[in-house]
Design a protein around this nucleic acid. Structure first.
Lengths: 188, 188
DNA sequence: GCTTCGCCAGGACGGTCGTCATAGTCAAGC
DNA sequence: GCTTGACTATGACGACCGTCCTGGCGAAGC
């Protein structure tokens, strides 16, 4: 049980703050305060500045979500159950942080559609990674390749749309609806 | 054909910039420059400051989308066709601005989940208004009340998720997928 | 003609931003 | 014990932020 390094704490705090308040609104000063990390070593660990921190934070978020997808499909043989479990986890996490959290990539992606190439690319890679992992599990469960690809995209649409709606509405209903809709699509 | 007032130009420019780059990243100075409106009269027209401008911009976005939904259902008797037309319009608009646009509310909603009560409320009202209008049209087309409510939520989930995915991916595929998925759900 | 008032021009104000430089600390290697 | 180099502390720097103020303009009302 090694304890997290300064760099790791900065990245995980950045991920949390970025998804909660966005990239632009999160300042280095507020970040180091929240992370309890030394302000002076920010540019030691991230010579590329805030942008490099942002890319690292998005990469961390990518991994975490990928892990959740894996767990969902390892625990449930029925794809619809896997999705329900996954979306339910996401809804619970969202509720736990009082509907201020959500997708670790969406907020940055919307802010930075124009502005930073590195961040835009990182967001693209995140979505792509999730789609690929999902497609793999769906094929493994017997779906034909083209269908698995289409379904993976449907799942992502429903997840992101559901997360956004839940956040605005301050309730978990949209994500539950999204999970049930995906279940219908999987069976259709 | 009266030409738009200074106030109106500020609001419509704000809507465009907010959805493109977010609320925090859009400054008054950049806004008046882009709108070609006088910088000195910003606080004359919006005594409540940037927040009041933000609320007005979201309200404008709410109306515009509501109008699009109405047009979609006036032109198409089949709900699935109405959705296809609507989502297609959204995808075309997104592509036209080089995938930097999207939903006029989503970006602000994600940034401001915490921070400004007025903006949060405005975003909630936007989503609620769209949902109500949609539910009305679906009922008009023969869907029973509870089912119409659920379907309206599904439509919003798919639209928002699709818009986000299209923006990240720089392509219109996810929105086309979303429209087809909604068509399946309408028929299921 | 004069006044009133909605609107515009331009800039001051205090604050915070990202960035970076400089000085200091401290444990590991010899 | 000394050196070295990775890490931390502190704050300066210029730029930009939202806000607000004062001064001026021009048309409508009397």
């Amino acid at each position: 049980m090694t304890q997290p390094t300064t760099r790791d704490r900065m990245i995980s705090t950045a991920m949390r703050l970025f998804r909660r308040e966005g990239y632009t609104a999160t300042s280095w000063r507020r970040l180091v305060e929240e992370a309890g990390t030394p302000w002076g070593s920010a540019y030691h660990h991230f010579p590329g500045g805030k942008e490099e921190l942002g890319v690292a934070a998005i990469a961390l978020g990518t991994e975490l979500v990928t892990g959740t997808i894996r767990r969902a499909f390892e625990r449930h043989s029925d794809p619809a159950d896997a999705i329900r479990w996954w979306f339910g986890k996401a809804a619970a996490a969202l509720e736990r942080e009082d509907f201020r959290g959500g997708c670790p990539v969406a907020t940055v992606a919307l802010e930075m559609a124009h502005g930073s190439d590195a961040l835009t690319t990182a967001c693209q890679e995140a979505f792509e990674a999730w789609r690929v992992v999902l497609t793999g599990f769906l094929r493994e469960r017997g779906f034909e390749a083209a269908r698995a690809n289409r379904l993976a995209m449907s799942v992502m649409n429903n997840l992101e749309g559901g997360l956004l709606a839940c956040r605005v509405r301050r309730g978990t209903t949209p994500l539950e609806r999204a999970a049930e809709d995906v279940a219908v699509l999987l069976g259709a």
